[in-house]
Design a protein around this nucleic acid. Structure first.
Length: 1021
RNA sequence: GCGGGGGUGCCCGAGCCUGGUCGAAGGGGGCGGACUCAAGAUCCGCUGGCGUAGGCCGGCGUGGGUUCAAAUCCCACCCCCCGCACCA
């Protein structure tokens, strides 16, 4: 096919080349797909990414392994692609790079998924069939969770291969492999020995029928059960029977004037831990799961309690029990204390009751007893906030739940944030004690601990005070209830006894973690703060659960180690697992001694060999390989893992390994959105990567992920953006193909020593671009580097070619060599991003070996000319100025006349740059220049202009200009045809003050260094 | 509530740490032009206002402050997003 350059003055008909004349983007993508499978096969045959110890410096990089409960999606693709680009870049810089991958089977979600398939759950089936396109007969088999997880494992591995991740697959494993379990047991024994594992009670969401903990994926609608802690305040009857009022605001007990029960609800009298309690039937049932021994004695309606007098545990007041329909027997205990001054519900309900004078009379209750009694004062809002809010919102029915909830929220929030306890609450305390001396002690104690304090502090103090006195207890409740488990039962809170915890709160451990963090590089740097705060904030973390896939706790086989706890140091496992497996070392041989030796260098390989039967050389090779790869050089994941996995990773490395094996770097990526929306299974937009890779081609997908946003940014993935980028690949492709023969022939020829300005400029410019890209890649600024490589370099090259054509020297001998070198260089720089594409181009231009194994392009310093860069900048500025004038005059130019300074006149500029770079003010500069000048006034004006000019230069260019003087006339002459083309008129250049220098119209601004005087003659139109 | 992040031009989004070089990178969209029979793609220019000479004036959530100088530093306020634990 014939390809003709149409643009430019020096149109050249090129020899026939195989330029891709694809009709549209889609056929181009088809081609990209084709070469991708070709190169994938060839690379695989050549085992390119298998990394073993060598004499090269090593670079060990890992990304968080996936949990295979679905297809690989864009979130995975982003993390792995960015990691891969970094890995490939490092490889091109001469490192022996290891990038392994495993699969995380630990946990319960796949069990839940398999159950959902069994149950015929519509949403899950729809997802699997319509979005994942899994055949029916396969879905049928997914009722087995192990089948399901293995299926997705295979699919994800396949997708990873499709998009060209440079993974060493020999080291692949899953977190339920027996040898891995052995490794995890070793880790946990170590932590246990160090005292980092403790046991305690722990509240969890619980299915009371099935008898199992529930988390979000076990509930209807995937709701996470939230647990709140109620304080139970013991209001007591004369016989000592306890009415436990459940509250979130124990500090308001000082204003509790009555107790509410729901008259229609069923209550029970029960013996709890040896005492009689009255509470709702539901509450008694729920408390049974919270370490209470409960024996129900009798059942009755709530109305039976109405009128009884109970003792307020804080004040000693004898307050009545009254009926209220708003009381929910299934929240808390069904017993509610009434604090009308601070609780809108209570105030409204009391207003209702006050209307029933006869009713109160019959019970012997005086309305004065039920008046709101203030407890908390809010500056500017008085001390009965609930009353004010209810009155201003005009709420008058206790059934108006919507308004009351709103009012409650408002009162709660304002009082919590701004409220203080009144001083006089102290005098109310234990008012039923008559002994004056005793009372004065009590009052003093309350004054110092509770009265006058801010609400949050008073709340805790009140609960602790009453609890220590045996007058309060606590109860857990589902805050966002009712929540139903996927088996259809209402979730309750159970307190697990003997829960195992990793004690991240332990100061000794935190100290190590802080130290480890301090020694690491964090990218982006802003995330470091998140890590240090997370380290401080961590307390105990439950590390085992009662069910799910995983490894059993070595000393307590009832428990399975939980997924975020068995994935903290697994990077160490990749370094040696394949050696053990290749030598047929089964898990039964992997005793703690073996791990101690391989991972910590403890013990003698001979003895261990004798005990376990593992050959000495296998042990020693393993130790050697671990020592070669560890420490981990870079850990990559999305930012959702910062506050859990990545911090655990730091803690556990710090706990298990010596300092020289602590990780060196963490790189954190942003989230992925799809077409402006969050990705979620319920939105049905979790598009499988294998489909996107087909639709956009692997390289197209990679480049879209890499260039659409910087790594710390959230990426909004859109196919259109990808297409635009693929178009760019096609454009570059065309450009390179049209020079194919030249590149082949000239890429090994030396760059000539005598070259033109534009030649020198392009070489220097490309060097500058590559250096910038490399610098960015070192910091994992993938997008910035990619932009430079795929867009900015292309523009430079096009500009260069355009200049060549304008000067009618396109494809002369010098330019052929230079173009060949640049294209060769360029293809290598693209390889980390679009490896398949780059490999194809590389083979097209006759490159040696594989481009994915080639080194990062380096342009030697000897070809780098700052002067050329400055000269081109000078030309650009000149052209812009000329255009600006033409634009303002709105006329067609006839001739451009330029007066430039002589090469010797750069002194003022240099001095100005010296002042700017030294951060010295303009005033001083002007003063100095003026003091040396003859015509002071003129010198002052010029000095200011020069200073302003210098400060307007980009820092890099400015720095170059600080010790270079250009022959401006020579430069303009060298590129005059190019300038003429850009401004559309002939240009003549003179030195300022030259005898025959032509001037059009009156004299304009004088020439300055880098800023020539411009005169333009226009046509009269 | 606690903790973290953020509000920039028509839109998306860099810059802010280390104040001047920020009308403010880069996209997208829009407008005009080139190419084309035409459309698309591509390329060039414009896209705050004013200006018949390369210039001038407003401007980076709101209000104050520091400074010769602030998108950048300080204070207050308004608004938005994310995480909070046994869950991968």
């Amino acid at each position: 096919m014939l390809y003709i350059w149409r643009r430019g003055i020096g149109c050249t008909v090129l020899p026939i080349v195989e330029a891709p004349q694809y009709k549209d983007i889609h056929s181009y993508i088809t081609w990209l797909n084709k070469i991708a499978s070709k190169w994938r096969r060839i690379w695989e045959e050549n085992c390119l990414y298998q990394a073993s110890p060598s004499s090269k410096p090593k670079f060990y990089i890992t990304a968080a392994f996936p949990y295979p409960n679905g297809m690989m999606h864009l979130g995975h693709a982003r993390t792995y692609t960015l990691t891969d680009i970094y890995a490939r870049y490092k490889r091109s810089r001469g490192f022996n790079v290891l990038f392994p991958m495993g699969f995380h089977y630990t946990g319960t979600p796949v069990l839940a998924m398999a159950d959902k398939i069994k149950e015929g759950d519509k949403a899950t089936l729809k997802l699997f069939k319509e979005l994942y396109r899994i055949p029916d007969e396969v879905i049928e088999k997914m009722k087995d969770p192990l089948f399901l997880v293995r299926y997705f494992h295979e699919k994800i591995r396949e997708s990873m291969k499709i998009i060209g991740l440079s993974i060493d697959w020999r080291r692949e494993f899953t977190s339920i492999d027996p040898d891995f379990s052995s490794f995890i047991r070793w880790q946990f024994n170590k932590l246990y020995e160090k005292g980092f594992i403790t046991q305690d009670t722990h509240p969890v969401g619980w299915d009371p029928v099935v008898g199992t903990p529930v988390s979000s994926h076990d509930t209807k609608g995937d709701v996470e059960p939230e647990i709140v802690e109620f304080t139970l305040l013991f209001f007591t009857l004369d016989d000592g029977t306890i009415l436990p009022a459940a509250t979130l605001r124990p500090e308001t007990v000082f204003g509790a004037v009555n107790i509410w029960v729901n008259p229609g609800a069923v209550y029970v009298k029960a013996c709890i831990d040896g005492k009689n309690w009255i509470l709702s039937k539901e509450a008694a049932y729920k408390l049974g799961f919270q370490l209470k021994k409960i024996e129900v004695i009798e059942e009755f309606k709530g109305e039976k309690l109405v009128g009884l007098r109970t003792r307020n545990p804080a004040t000693g007041w004898r307050v009545p029990v009254l009926p209220a329909v708003f009381v929910d027997p299934d929240t808390g205990t069904g017993i509610v204390m009434s604090v009308p001054a601070h609780a809108p519900y209570d105030y409204v309900a009391l207003k209702d009751i006050m209307k029933q004078k006869d009713f109160l009379l019959k019970l012997g209750i005086k309305p004065s007893e039920l008046q709101p009694i203030p407890v908390i004062e809010v500056p500017g809002r008085g001390n009965k906030l609930a009353v004010d809010v209810v009155e201003s919102m005009k709420i008058d029915k206790q059934t108006d739940r919507e308004a009351l909830d709103k009012a409650t929220k408002e009162v709660y929030s304002i009082e919590f944030k701004q409220g203080r306890m009144l001083d006089d609450i102290a005098y109310r305390v234990l008012s039923d004690i008559n002994d004056d001396r005793l009372r004065s002690y009590v009052v003093a104690a309350i004054k110092s601990l509770i009265a006058g304090k801010p609400v949050p502090e008073a709340r805790d103090a009140t609960a602790k005070w009453l609890s220590d006195a045996g007058l309060a207890d606590k109860m857990y409740e589902i805050a966002n209830g009712p929540v139903y488990s996927r088996w259809g039962n209402k979730v309750v809170v159970k307190i697990l006894e003997n829960q195992w915890f990793l004690d991240y709160g332990k100061e000794e451990w935190k100290k190590l973690a802080r130290e480890a963090l301090a020694s690491m590089r964090i990218i982006p740097p802003g995330i470091r703060k998140d890590f240090s705060e997370t380290i401080e904030w961590f307390q105990k973390r439950a590390c085992a659960r009662t069910r799910g896939l995983g490894t059993k706790l070595p000393w307590d086989e009832e428990w399975v180690i939980e997924s975020l706890s068995d994935s903290t140091i697994y990077m160490a496992f990749y370094t040696i697992n394949y050696i053990l497996r290749n030598n047929g070392i089964g898990p039964e041989k992997l005793t703690p001694d073996v791990w101690d030796y391989i991972l910590l260098g403890k013990g003698s390989p001979r003895e261990i060999s004798k005990k376990t039967g593992i050959p000495v050389n296998v042990l020693m090779d393993s130790r050697k390989e671990f020592e070669y790869w560890y420490p981990l050089d870079s850990r990559h994941s999305a930012k959702d893992l910062v506050k859990n996995h990545l911090t655990f990773f730091i803690f556990n490395h710090a706990a298990i390994f010596p300092k020289d094996k602590w990780p060196r770097q963490i790189v954190v990526y942003g989230y992925v959105m799809y077409r402006g929306q969050k990705m979620s299974k319920s939105l049905f937009n979790v598009i499988p990567v294998e489909m996107l890779a087909k639709q956009l081609s692997p390289d197209g997908l990679r480049i879209a992920i890499a260039l659409s946003s910087e790594i710390d940014q959230d990426l909004d993935f859109r196919e259109e953006t990808a297409y635009t980028l693929i178009e760019q690949l096609r454009r570059i492709h065309t450009l390179i193909l049209s020079h194919k023969e030249i590149i082949k022939e000239y890429r090994k020829k030396p760059i000539p020593t005598r070259i033109s300005l534009e030649d020198s400029w392009i070489i220097s410019k490309i060097k500058e671009r590559l250096d910038h890209a490399a610098e960015m890649l070192e910091e994992s600024r993938i997008r910035d580097a990619g932009n430079t490589i795929f867009y900015i370099i292309e523009e430079d090259i096009k500009k260069y070619i355009d200049i060549l054509k304008t000067k009618k020297r396109y494809l002369d001998e010098e330019s052929k060599v230079i173009l060949a070198h640049i294209f060769d260089t360029w293809i290598r720089a693209m390889a980390p991003y679009t490896p398949f594409y780059a490999e194809e181009l590389w083979s097209t231009i006759g490159g040696e070996g594989f481009v994915v194994e080639a080194s990062w392009p380096i342009i030697e310093d000897e070809f780098y000319s700052e002067e050329a860069l400055l000269a081109m900048e000078y030309i650009d500025r000149l052209v812009n100025d000329i255009r600006e004038i033409i634009r303002v005059r709105k006329k067609k130019p006839r001739e451009i006349i330029v007066h430039v300074v002589k090469p010797g006149e750069y002194r003022l500029l240099w001095k100005a740059i010296e002042y700017i770079e030294g951060n010295k003010p303009m005033k001083e500069y002007i003063r100095e220049v003026v003091s040396e000048a003859l015509n002071k006034k003129k010198a002052g004006i010029i000095a200011r202009q020069v200073y302003e000019l210098a400060s307007s230069l980009p820092p890099k260019i400015r720095h170059i200009a600080s010790n270079v003087s250009l022959d401006e006339k020579g430069i303009i002459k060298e590129l005059d045809v190019w300038i003429e083309k850009l401004v559309g008129a002939p240009i003549t250049v003179y030195y300022q003050g030259e005898k025959d220098a032509k001037i059009v119209g009156r004299e304009k601004k004088p020439s300055l260094p880098l800023k020539p005087a411009i005169y333009i003659e226009f046509y009269n139109k």
